[in-house]
């Protein structure tokens, strides 16, 4: 087999399954954070999602981070505003208007 072809297979087919250690995990985690915050560029996103299809580590990080965000959003209870608060604020504002 031609050397080029061998390299191509190694890079594109085999690595797809054996890349369990990410050489750039730290950078990937930073990009992930920006993506989940919806502050990333299109390029960053495309590059990242192409990467996690090949990188098991980052794929797992992606799922974990997403789950943590979801956890924060859904599990933290909202405190209901006391009924009287809005009324008393309006009353105080009225007093300021009269002054």
């Amino acid at each position: 087999m031609a050397k080029n072809l061998q390299n191509w297979i190694k890079k594109n087919l085999i690595s797809r399954y054996v890349m369990t250690d990410c050489p750039e995990e730290e950078r990937c985690l930073h990009v992930l954070e920006v993506i989940l915050d919806d502050e990333s560029t299109l390029d960053e996103e495309q590059e990242y999602f192409a990467h996690i299809e090949q990188c098991w580590t980052c794929y797992q990080n992606y799922n974990l981070e997403k789950a943590i965000r979801e956890l924060i959003k859904t599990k933290i209870e909202k405190k209901p505003v006391p009924d009287t608060l809005l009324k008393s604020i309006k009353l105080e504002i009225e007093k300021l208007t009269i002054e």
């Binding site: 950078r27 985690l29 799922n63 974990l64």
Partner: peptide
């Protein structure tokens, strides 16, 4: 550092 932990989903 961007850390990974042994935390799992």
């Amino acid at each position: 550092k961007a850390i990974t932990t042994d935390l799992r989903i």
